[in-house]
Design a protein around this nucleic acid. Structure first.
Lengths: 348, 348
DNA sequence: TTGAAAGCGCTACCAT
DNA sequence: ATGGTAGCGCTTTCAA
């Protein structure tokens, strides 16, 4: 009894409408609507079953757009990420969709390609969707001019009743899930100093990449507390990618380690690229040069030696963002991080 | 001049509507609509600018749902994946969104959690969205009963004018992007035999995981062609995850390698887990035991030894799926794979 | 408990 | 070139 698709006047088949269901059930559209979702109370049980049967027979699916416009609100949540293929973002995306689906929301996802301009553009068109919530898992980049425009756009959206939550972009006036980059990096620095390391190098992303900046600041701070200083010569700036990490490590290895005992890369992807570069340069990671990263992505335990890192519960961060967006009050949720020492930084 | 949000009668601020824009510009809604998107030809340039200015001033964004219902079609593409956090799916997702955005489509994503039942449920509710296209990056699992229901549901959707494309689930009657699992695995088997390997083990997922089945079949076939046979005792079945790979390898190592020279895991994630397990068991991957995987995920080159694998251009597969969905005719696109020998399988 | 009908925001047709 | 208006599919008063 399925395969029931009405043929419209012009011959093109058309999905069944509420109207069709009502007619099939021999009731009015109002009653059909009520039977399908409105307070079932006020409709004779017999009619309820008639409508349900008709709907099933016609394979009816309510037109979400029509519902949205009639009700004045949608059941969608919009998620903006920098790059889905990056485990950092895809983990967050997993958490967001899990929580969204639990709340009966449909997730629409846009990829900003790590560009603040694109991010702004996306948010702009997203508003047209009238999503219930917009979650931005930041490009982790400060876009000078675009920043104000983005804030403006989001404020606008919120004024109109939307909920916005930012992941890892504190000090913007919205709900925020922050990741304790500074604290985690500080802990890591102290842990490494405690393990006997004294001569450090850092592989970082450009200044405008906020996440990187915070991690470097926290790390430097942690070293200072441990009474160790960081020589600027050993801070190399590169792209926030595996390739960047590889290139930076090659440069370090190329100019001679010069006494460096350990290098901290601001994320695991870069750290792993760096380990490979060291190895390619004839250095044995964990013996000739220790390496530490940040994020504790899954593959951290599969590289050799296993990578010391700072664990960030990314999926949890995504889920928290969604819950925060759905909650009424809410301000800021802080995601704690935790240092995990592994073989890539043996005690010395 | 922004921050213009009308206050509705009940006090709650409301986003500007086309009506507001028209009033602000001193024209009719019809003209405003035309100025904003209809053939700009039939509207006095002066009015066009008035409307544009008004829209900018009011920070107007067209209500997509309203447009959808008025026009009878949306600008969305729906993507269902098994698990976003898995690099296999997130790479595909990256390709799909890239191509979708290029075509001006909004992507909505749902996660099926590798469950055919959930997949069916998702497709059902997706139909309510009236997306232009539905792309399913399969759960890679054959769900006995649900399969027919899924086909039915999708057929329904297509009859109503929707486009459906399946990734890696051939022999379903829809547009399909197939990945040459069988061929790639066959090539790999021959390459390994050519490198001197004779005694093989296989780490596979359960029979109902189609991708796994195809890769095993292709591999066995390739071995046969090379005149090598595969002993059933050395085919171990496990979960289609890193943990599964780890467990299987531990089992193999635990009962003694028994002459096995190389193990093929049906995907990289499993292969990498297996390498770690071997190492934990005191075996050196690439020396004591060779390992090969499938997919060539990014981290294949970052593990030690670098992992021999079969490259699958996943992002390309995702983009192809989108293009296929948008194209008129079209049937099946085949994504070719390519064997990449690395240090995990040295010649012997 | 039910149905008629007034919108929701927008597009497109028909006049003008 | 422009405006009036009839829908699009649905929800939600308002009467009956």
């Amino acid at each position: 009894m399925s395969g029931m698709v009405e043929a419209s006047p012009d011959g093109r088949p058309t999905p069944a409408t509420l109207h069709d269901v009502a007619r099939e059930a021999g009731v009015s559209v109002a009653t059909a609507s009520r039977a399908l979702n409105g307070s079932t109370r006020n409709v004779r049980t017999e009619n309820v079953s008639r409508v349900l049967a008709a709907a099933a027979k016609l394979d009816y699916e309510p037109h979400l757009s029509a519902q949205a416009i009639a009700k004045g609100s949608t059941r969608t949540a919009a998620l903006v990420v920098g790059d889905v293929a990056d485990p950092y973002f895809s983990s967050i995306a997993a958490g967001v969709t899990r929580a969204a689906e639990a709340a009966g929301l449909i997730v629409t996802m846009a990829v900003a390609d790590r560009s603040p301009e694109r991010e702004l553009e996306i948010v702009r068109t997203l508003r047209g969707q009238r999503p219930r919530v917009i979650i931005i898992a930041g490009s982790r980049v400060d876009g000078a001019g675009t920043r104000d425009a983005l804030v403006e756009e989001l404020a606008q959206y919120r004024t109109a009743g939307g909920r916005v939550v930012l992941i890892s972009q504190q000090d913007l006036p919205f709900g925020t899930v922050t990741i304790d980059n500074r604290g985690g990096a500080g802990q890591l620095a102290r842990a490494l100093a405690g393990a006997g390391y004294r001569r450090f190098a850092v592989i970082r992303a450009p200044e405008r990449v906020r996440t990187s900046r915070e991690r470097v600041d926290g790390f430097t701070e942690g070293l200072r507390e441990a009474g160790v200083s960081l020589d600027d010569r050993f801070v190399v700036e590169t792209e926030f990618t595996r390739a960047g990490g590889y290139a930076a490590a090659r440069e370090l290895a190329g100019r001679g380690l010069d006494g460096i005992e350990v290098v901290f890369a601001v994320n695991d992807v870069m750290a792993i690229g760096a380990m490979t570069a060291f190895r390619d340069a004839g250095l044995v990671p964990g013996e000739d040069i220790a390496v530490a990263g940040f994020d504790d992505i899954g593959s951290a335990v599969d590289v050799v030696p296993a990578l010391t890192s700072v664990a960030v519960p990314l999926e949890e961060a995504g889920a928290s963002a969604m819950r925060l967006a759905l909650a009424e009050g809410s301000e800021t949720v802080r995601i704690e991080t935790r240092v995990i020492l592994r073989e890539s930084t043996p005690p010395r």
